[in-house]
Write a protein that binds this DNA or RNA. Structure first.
Lengths: 178, 178
DNA sequence: TTTTTCGTTCAGTCTTGATTGAACGAAGCG
DNA sequence: CGCTTCGTTCAATCAAGACTGAACGAAAAA
């Protein structure tokens, strides 16, 4: 089955020479790099190009993706706050559109992952202190290795900085205007 | 073969109840989440706990990892500027230690990926403009979809913010003190 | 009611990439 | 020179997860 979006709605059969399709694939690549299914990235890319409400089955057609994958990945993107499910009066199908502030929400997703990691590091540091010392040779004098402290500080700093960026983006508007 | 680090150097056979080992596994998880091999993450975690020069074969022993994987992943981390290969006089083996400013370099790696994506988006935008219009229906009035512009702006903003953070960390010291 | 059209779920397939282990060349040591 | 000990490379294995397609239940339409 064809892996590239249905070119019927665009201009090029391959997609390599159409900025729209290239952009969509690019978001797929990038998202995949970030550890997300490629299809989710392509969906997001499509919505960036065409934010208007798009029906469930039209998504499947335009991207040549099985309905199963559409269901899974739209729910994934919905959970991350990147797209929204909207009711279209008189229509039985589900419709989706780009969320209000997709990029702001994307940042929140990233910081959430970081915060989770950071908190387990904190727990490890506490456990390390509580457990006393003298269990392993190389930690005799210093309860918490400098690297662990540095890692914790790094995550804290990152989270703060990114949420600052999110707040700035949100204030400036943040939503994607067509 | 055992998947957990060799507990001989620590205190617990499972690693679940030793902050050091938990931390190492945690970094493995996090790095894997970020799309990097888990082993690379565990290596990095080990160096955060024990930054001192560690020999090639000791890495294999302590983490119960094949020499092939050590070779591959140390080179990966080296390329990312997270660890360094150091010469230990009189020793035939390769030794590694934590890089000077691992987290600063980590940020640069992230921004590099983002910049790459951003630049291809820029190219798409230019191509979209140059190609004139009137090729697809939904882009008749507006050359570049708002979502593409927003995505580009987002990446630019992210890169700027993160490099600002990197600069701040570098100035503040940035290196991990033992 | 029956029929059709939805979206979801899940078992199965398939792709991708990590990991290993053996083979190899280089380089110090005897 | 052999012999050993390195680190690298590569084919083969293995595992994780994406993706599909069919089966399913719900709900509108007829």
């Amino acid at each position: 089955m064809n892996q590239t979006p249905d070119p019927r709605h665009f201009s090029s059969p391959t997609g390599d020479d159409c900025p729209h399709l290239r952009f969509i694939e690019r978001m797929g690549d990038h998202m995949e790099l970030e550890g997300m299914p490629r299809i989710a990235g392509r969906l997001f890319g499509l919505f960036l190009v065409d934010p208007g409400p798009i029906s469930f089955s039209e998504l499947a057609e335009r991207l040549s993706i099985s309905r199963g994958s559409i269901s899974t990945n739209t729910r994934l993107l919905e959970g991350k706050g990147l797209i929204e499910r909207v009711d279209v009066p008189g229509e039985r199908q589900d419709y989706f559109r780009l969320a209000d502030r997709p990029f702001v929400n994307m940042i929140h997703g990233i910081t959430a992952r970081m915060r989770e990691t950071m908190e387990t590091i904190e727990a490890d540091c506490r456990a390390r202190k509580d457990a006393g010392v003298a269990q392993s040779a190389e930690a005799a004098g210093e309860p918490v290795p400098g690297g662990m402290r540095a890692a914790h500080e790094f995550f804290a700093e990152c989270i703060g900085t990114l949420e600052g960026l999110a707040a700035r983006l949100a204030k400036r508007g943040g939503e994607v205007k067509p």
